[in-house]
Design a protein around this nucleic acid. Structure first.
Lengths: 214, 214
DNA sequence: CGTCCTGGTGAGTGATTACTCACCAGGACA
DNA sequence: TGTCCTGGTGAGTAATCACTCACCAGGACG
């Protein structure tokens, strides 16, 4: 518990540590399941002080959703691989960003809770965390269809399909507690391979297409 | 509002109408977000009577999760197609079962809420509603791999991947409100096609593999 | 007739909730 | 020295929560 600062802090510091403490609680128990008393305790301050910084509990929640926008550097890496037409790399990047063990697990819970509980900022949160990905991916897929490298598919649907595979994987793992018996790299590569080349075996033509999947 | 029965009902009838009324509320607002007063009002009875039938609010919630087990007839249809090795049909059946417009939208919300809020019966609920599907699908995929018809993939991972695509689709639509601009049949067929044949175009060999997807 | 069971309720109970208010400590600056 | 601002609190408050209890209506059965 990082609740060890009864010392004075500036307004901005307090606000930040409040947001940090509350984020964990909201992600764990949802908006309705979290009390302001718990938040204050987790931040190591009195309940009254919480309301000096945020007029209502909802306002604190909104501040959290508004703050966690991230994304950023990943899109650059994607952009670069897109220029090189490195299909495998792009899909691996996106999948990895969603499955990678280091990724903050609270964000997914926060996102789901906010959507289920119907918070007003949920749409924005969803847009910043998910929509960007499948919009960018859809654009790339369209490009590759035009190149003639991909089959004639609906780019948006295909993008959603791929991201769906991998988000669902995380969902199973983090929300439903399904154990993942394969390594992270292995899993990502399997998903990418599956999506790019499909399930049906290609009868022996000259191509060395059958990548090992183990 | 079906709250129009102040008349006497037998204990079992009351219990059933209580469960029906509460299911909608729990799915909409979660366990913590739903009050017993609301439930009573939706069922058209007094709050006290709710507790005559269920000792606690949690017990009522548990009764709901325990009751909604369904599945059933779909597995028979799958079994039949499995004997015929009708790949497309099997994947279409499963996808359809999850995307079909008629499917009760409250179940998905209920499932997510119960998992996020960490209800004790959540695992069971998940097992009956999802695990059966990807276990069955994984078994079929393994069979087809042994037939030599599918590539050498991890069956469980592949099954999860496909179901992930389609569950994610429903999630986007029902929970996040993303509009779906294509028809139901079209969407399902696109997903199945994508999963079976992959994204990468097969260079012109003799096969007429490129199914139209539009 | 009485009495007993079942379905049903109004009016509470104490605990908990989000939120408020009067007040305090101490450094800054005059 | 005084006073003023900022960070901080203990002790509330009204509302709401899950849950309880004493009681009622009426049909069944003797």
């Amino acid at each position: 518990m990082p609740a060890t600062q009864p010392s004075k802090q500036s307004s901005r510091e307090r606000q930040a540590s409040l947001i940090q403490a509350a984020t964990g609680l909201f992600a764990e128990k949802g908006f309705n399941g979290t009390t302001t008393r718990e938040i204050a305790k987790a931040a190591g301050i009195s309940e009254a002080l919480v309301f000096k910084h945020f007029p209502t509990k909802r306002a604190l929640y909104a501040a959290i959703l508004a703050e966690k926008v991230t994304v950023g550097e990943l899109l650059d890496a994607i952009e670069e691989s897109a220029r090189k037409r490195d299909d495998r790399r792009i899909f691996t990047l996106i999948a990895g960003y969603r499955i990678r063990p280091g990724v903050d697990p609270t964000l997914l819970r926060l996102l789901l809770f906010s959507a289920l509980e119907g918070h007003e900022l949920s749409d924005m949160f969803f847009g910043k965390h998910h929509k960007v990905f499948y919009d960018r991916l859809a654009a790339y897929i369209q490009q590759r269809v035009e190149d003639g490298a991909f089959r004639q598919v609906d780019p948006l649907l295909a993008a959603r399909a791929f991201i769906g595979m991998v988000v669902h994987h995380r969902l199973l793992h983090e929300i439903f507690g399904v154990p993942m018996d394969r390594s992270y790299d292995d899993t990502v590569s399997s998903y990418v391979d599956l999506f790019l080349h499909g399930l049906v075996a290609v009868p022996a033509t000259g191509r060395a297409k059958t990548r090992r999947v183990t």
